[in-house]
Design a protein around this nucleic acid. Sequence first.
DNA 1: CCCACCTCCATAACACTGTTATGCCCTCAT
DNA 2: ATGAGGGCATAACAGTGTTATGGAGGTGGG
Lengths: 217, 217
Amino acid sequence: MLTAVSTPVATRLLTAAARLLSEEGPAALTTRRLAREVGTSTMAVYTHFGSLPDLVRAVIHEGFQRVAERLRALPATDDPVADLFEECRVTVEYARAEPHHFAVMFSGSPLAGLQMSEDDLRIGSYALRIARDTVERCIAAGRFRPAEPWLVTRHLWCQTHGLIQLERAGYFGPTLVPPGTPYLETYLRDFAVGAGDTLEAATASMARPHPRRATPE
Amino acid sequence: MLTAVSTPVATRLLTAAARLLSEEGPAALTTRRLAREVGTSTMAVYTHFGSLPDLVRAVIHEGFQRVAERLRALPATDDPVADLFEECRVTVEYARAEPHHFAVMFSGSPLAGLQMSEDDLRIGSYALRIARDTVERCIAAGRFRPAEPWLVTRHLWCQTHGLIQLERAGYFGPTLVPPGTPYLETYLRDFAVGAGDTLEAATASMARPHPRRATPE
DNA sequence: CCCACCTCCATAACACTGTTATGCCCTCAT
DNA sequence: ATGAGGGCATAACAGTGTTATGGAGGTGGG
């Protein structure tokens, strides 16, 4: 039983699961709770999804799609480095807004015994294609030194996910990091410098006045 | 009920928990399984630790200590950048050797409802002090541009944890990344460049023949 | 020496979990 | 109208964390 479920009960289960995950965390994702929320019985989960982990998998796929949509909605300007910064900011903002969602999407930690398949991984890294294209533009523009774009993109991905994870765990809390520290901006700028950009150009791209994103909806 | 438990049953519980976590993953960490493993009843968990999450917390603290020990065992050479690289490599190697352990230590994902306290976070970031000192040496040596050492250290921490997490989730598997790609080395080198080092110096520090670590045991 | 006490744990229960077998109901096609 | 089948309600099973209870076993005081 994969995805592509569209009967009304199945979609209601999906939205209820997303809401519960978002509002009360993974502990609220139980079959009985879902059934009560939707007004059905636990069997609905099994007829429509096969198991609870499979339902969670569907929720995850939806999350991937949502992030990819937000990234696709960003306009490409003539400053690819600034565009790359903006893409990272959007990702981090999504992760901060939906911490549980994001945690389940990427934790790899077996919530309810779920583990990602090869296909899941491919879907999960699909949003990376967008960043990869931007990285390629950075290289073509001479801002980044010539390199394999995927390799550079994955480096940024590591940095972004590490930041999100450590933020969520609390390691950037106010008692550990002085409040107001623009660490995300610093790390993005330094990443660009590490990829080949000059400190001045990277700083300028960071300070660039709002390459405001086209609102998705 | 905090840590500092030393009665024989408690330590046997701890070692059994660490072994189960290491060998069979977090799903094996149940009170009944632990009791069976140690030859006692589930009540032992509660008299000695208070709850299962508290036992897991103790396991986590032990993991933190072990990583810090390995880092402290590294000798300081006259190339602080190479030393920093080595510290990262040791951390990544530990994470690869004990993936479940590391995942629980930093996932922040509420395994069995555990969530880190302020003290836990302080303990967790204690190993960072070692890296921070090395970063300071990099700045003092003129390899890194002047900056707040903690800020730079946390950047490296983000990058390292993101890589570990995505590796564990499978995003660096052979079907996604060409096998043999030295991505960790590339990312460390680019990080140094982003922190102010020159590409040539960073490459040289990376290629430096084994600043072999003093074996801890 | 004996008795009180007190810590540690074995037993059993409670409320929960995911999952499955069974069977009913309702719909839809023939 | 009647058979067929999908979708779900009910109830059960095996497992979970946790707690109350009570019984051993050692320890200290009289």
